[in-house]
Design a protein around this nucleic acid. Structure first.
Lengths: 231, 231
DNA sequence: CAATCTAAAATTGTCTACAATTTATCATAA
DNA sequence: TTATGATAAATTGTAGACAATTTTAGATTG
């Protein structure tokens, strides 16, 4: 389990949450992976209590699934959940993008450009996982601009879950992605054009969902005999 | 700390979360109250670990605030947060009410009527706290009808936080409340009139917010001398 | 009397031990 | 070989012990 080790010597559970979250969102640990408490506590050099607390926090975010007596696993969202997450984003983010556009300062716009640049760089370096992660940060940055902490927090967890969903269902291995949309969105925000920002965001979310392959992963029912037949 | 004791002998942290949540939402514990870990564990007859886990879960829901080395307190939302919570509800609930109307079955409508009846009964019994709690359940029931678990979960926590907000900022001690609106909404849902349900919900949320007294609780800045002058 | 400091009590943070449960291993039998 | 079942290993659940911190109470001083 690869973890960037820019951590204090006695990390708090929040530090561990952050580190694990980055690892999950950048797809450095596969969905469904087991997260053993002893391993986590060893890696971070803390007792099991703290590791446990961190895993429970991630479970509340929906990035980890805890099954009683079985342990913690990196979340493995199904197609149903994938659709639901984007439904929720569709309700929250377009309006939020509008507010962001109405309030954006030059400094904020500069920050958005920085996010886009970093994402672009990761893409060119071939690190798709990191690019997806950074793309999420861009959406969160917009949410922060709207100055609605409660909504921003909800968007934040939805975006995080989306990152996991993209890892599982993204159709095109290396399409040129959506950096154009992010550019256009940033322009609308810089121009304080709320209506356009709202529309762009709405379309962007539709595009994202459309680029997922949401056929059932494995329909265990009828295909089992087929699998046996092939073998 | 009054708690209905319909709990198993060895309650899980989830049981405790539920019990504490009901107590908080029905205003049986005041916002800002300290929740000492030892007391919680004694009341429920469990070790401190489980009580701790429960309090952390409630903190993730926004019903409890945990301050490091100081402990857990029943959340005490400010006016800012109050506005934000209703902003978020305004983005989520109207559309969700529309979906609910489009999908509602007769059994579901019957359930909504039951909720309204219970709420009405609590109001007549003078138990305002319970009425607010039940009113919240009504909104959650609608969210469940829409068959979007992710959105429903978000609405659920927002409604819960609203209950706390109403406890703090409700203007009229015992106005005839909004049972009429709930009735009209239920009718729209029963008639599968999605558009009307959406409108009613939107208006209902505006009304709720309008009936809050969101002047600053204590504006420590300039008014301190005024207070001293009055004394 | 108010303010400040000190010591005791209370409370939270963390670790570790032990119990309960699940998972893995391996021998046995069909 | 494949199933089945018993045993051992690994892992999680819970409680309690001790350390660190905050809160309280009392004494001291101006």
């Amino acid at each position: 389990m690869l973890l960037q080790s820019d951590l204090p010597l006695n990390p708090s559970s929040d530090d561990i949450v952050g580190s694990l979250r980055r690892a999950i969102l950048a797809h450095r640990v596969a969905p469904g992976s087991k997260l053993v408490e002893d391993e986590v506590s060893d890696v971070f050099g803390v007792g099991r209590s703290i590791a446990r607390t961190a895993l429970q926090a991630l479970a509340h975010e929906g990035l980890v699934t805890i099954i009683r007596n079985r342990g913690a696993f990196v979340a493995d969202p199904g197609v149903r959940e994938a659709r639901e997450v984007f439904e929720a984003r569709a309700l929250l983010e377009p309006r939020t993008a509008r507010s962001a556009a109405e309030r954006a300062t030059p400094a904020a716009v500069k920050l958005l450009h920085k996010h886009i640049a970093a994402e672009h760089q990761a893409l060119q370096a071939g690190d798709l996982g990191k690019a997806v992660y950074l793309s999420g940060l861009y959406h969160m940055a917009i949410a922060d601009l709207a100055d609605q902490a409660t909504i921003a927090a909800m968007i934040s967890t939805l975006v995080a879950r989306s990152s996991l969903i993209v890892a599982l269902y993204w159709r095109r291995p290396q399409a040129l992605c959506e950096s154009h949309v992010h550019h256009a969105l940033t322009d609308a925000i810089a121009a304080h054009d709320g209506a356009r920002a709202e529309d762009l965001m709405k379309g962007h979310l539709v595009d994202l969902l459309a680029n997922l392959d949401l056929r059932e992963k494995l329909q265990i029912g009828g295909s089992l005999c087929d699998i046996l037949r092939q073998a």
